[in-house]
Design a protein around this nucleic acid. Structure first.
Length: 549
DNA sequence: CCCCCCCC
């Protein structure tokens, strides 16, 4: 438990003040000191708060801030702002603010900072809705006292336990929510989703990976897709490690997936032993030098079921739904008939159809949709006499041609370009194409087979050896590194680390942890908010020092 | 003093 020690000797101050004949001021000072002392002496854990409790002080960190919303009910046309706070015992609670309180605190509360908070309302939340705290919620008002502190909390105390990727589905069967951590390996665009009730929400898919290079897709919903999602996107190249709490697991069309809830929080590179270990590993050579994503694809291919084009063409029924497969085939040609993109609807990424009125999204029923090009490469592949069309979007295409498709398209017009040479060198080479069985389509005649590949891997070495000497050298070096890593990953036992660490580590134990990117991130958050920081609240003007006892 | 728990 933390205790506040006042750095000024206030008894002395009182005596000195008595010498002045200003009884009123003495009195007011006394009151201030009394409340200060009370503030200092009575920091209580959130889990000891009682409903309607009048006198309390908590020290809590801001784990999440929602977007300030405008209430649109007729009577109460005001604003609401919700936050999720947590104290050093790991107890979370939702704090709600309305109009005047929002005006007072919107420049004060900052993501991932800690505050002393007192003099607000402790109430029962609406039982209809899931809440981070099962029975309580705070309402912060104009008269609420808020004072920033320098405390940092260990991230793992906010998590019940970090569940291993492989154990998530089983965990969800027993527990409603799951907490995980990993490094961010992909961040998608955010989309507006039309809800069945007519409203709108936002959605963004991200993928995180663990030390064993298992990847885990997570869907961010609502303003988390916008706020945290944008931070993840803008800092993507920093190899961020995140702790995501209170994820919900659902099964949609046989596929298990994780989604955020209104209780979910994301912490960016937080202070925590497990995160620190992963960070160290992630930034260490040789993983730093090679494409971790491609390694992950290769790992998936290892675990996927092998199939051949003939099986897919002749007898597609035994293929399991939503299962990863791969086939091996040779690139015969790169289709040039089509432009290598289609018009996608900016909002949902779906294909647009041209009508008399303009471009229409066939899924969203949107007229005159604003389009974006969705780049992809269509390959004709062969395995003996069996042919298939393979479509590569984004990452798989990048791993084939060594650049983004946009780069390729921009440079491919000059036929002397490096990328074009690379593309040509892919022809008559063998690859393994990874795909999900639900991304396979057969033509009406049953003659043509089209798959959308999730990833590709060269099936034979030295594919790119011809291109130039320097690169050959690099490729060899990388290949050696890769071999090392793959061996190391394969050697890793399924549950090697962290479990004991969680038990061992004690939240009260101060550990020196260096977070390199912390300052950048903090600067980033400030920029994000673009709100000038206001003066601190008035009650605590004296310098206070926080100490662990 | 508020509220949807979502979609392919």
């Amino acid at each position: 438990m933390s205790r506040l020690i006042l750095s000024c000797n206030y008894k002395l101050l009182i005596r000195r003040r008595r010498n002045h004949k200003q009884e009123n001021r003495i009195l007011s000072n006394w009151i201030q000191i009394q409340s200060l002392t009370m503030f200092a002496e009575s920091i209580i854990p959130i889990n000891s708060l009682q409903s309607n409790q009048k006198i309390w002080t908590i020290e809590a960190m801001v784990l999440r801030q929602e977007i300030i919303e405008t209430l649109n009910n007729v009577q109460n046309n005001g604003k609401i702002w919700k936050m999720i706070l947590a104290d050093n015992m790991g107890t979370k609670i939702q704090a709600v603010m309305f109009n005047e309180a929002i005006r007072k605190f919107e420049g004060i509360f900052q993501y991932s900072k800690a505050y002393l908070i007192s003099n607000g309302t402790v109430k029962k939340p609406n039982e209809k809705f899931a809440n981070v705290h099962p029975s309580l919620e705070l309402v912060l008002q104009q008269h609420t006292n808020v004072q920033e502190t320098t405390s940092t909390f260990d991230a793992h105390i906010f998590a019940n336990e970090f569940v291993k990727f492989k154990k998530i589905q089983k965990h969800i069967e027993i527990n409603p929510y799951v907490d995980i951590f990993g490094f961010v390996s992909s961040v998608g665009q955010s989309y507006v989703i039309k809800k069945k009730n007519g409203g709108e929400t936002h959605k963004r898919e991200i993928t995180i990976m663990n030390k064993e290079l298992d990847s885990l897709p997570i869907t961010l919903w609502g303003d988390m897709a916008l706020n945290e999602g944008q931070m993840l996107q803008e800092n993507f190249d920093k190899k961020q490690i995140i702790v995501v709490s209170n994820l919900n697991g659902t099964t949609y069309q046989g596929q298990f997936q994780l989604s955020t809830t209104n209780m979910s929080t994301i912490q960016f590179d937080p202070h925590c032993v497990q995160v620190q270990k992963l960070k160290k590993w992630l930034h260490s050579s040789p993983t730093n030098e090679i494409d971790v994503q491609q390694l992950a694809v290769e790992k998936k291919i290892k675990q996927a079921k092998e199939i051949n084009i003939r099986d897919l063409l002749t007898n597609p029924s035994p293929i399991m739904e939503n299962t990863l497969y791969y086939f091996q085939a040779t690139i015969d040609d790169v289709e040039k008939k089509d432009q290598p993109w289609y018009d996608g609807y900016r909002v949902c990424n779906k294909r647009l159809t041209e009508t008399r009125e303009g471009l229409e999204c066939y899924k969203c029923d949107t007229k005159n949709a604003e389009s974006i090009p969705r780049y992809h490469i269509r390959l004709e592949v062969i395995d003996g006499n069996d042919k298939a069309i393979v479509i590569l979007f984004d990452e798989p295409a990048t791993s084939l041609i060594g650049c983004t498709i946009l780069d390729y398209i921009n440079s491919v017009r000059k036929f002397t370009s490096h990328f074009y040479k690379k593309m040509v060198s892919c022809k008559s080479m063998q690859y393994k194409f990874l795909f999900n069985s639900n991304r396979v389509t057969h033509s009406a005649t049953g003659q043509t087979l089209t798959i959308i590949a999730q990833g590709i891997e060269t099936a034979q070495a030295d594919n790119f050896a011809k291109i130039n000497e320097a690169e050959t050298h690099e490729t060899k070096k990388k290949r050696q590194l890769k071999k090392k890593i793959v061996e190391a990953i394969d050697a890793v036992e399924p549950t090697p680390i962290e479990d004991e660490d969680i038990n061992k580590s004690n939240p009260n134990e101060k550990e020196l942890i260096e977070i390199e990117d912390d300052e950048n991130l903090n600067a980033f958050y400030k920029r994000q908010k673009q709100i000038p920081r206001k003066k601190k609240p008035t009650i605590l003007k004296k310098k206070i020092k926080l100490e662990n006892v």
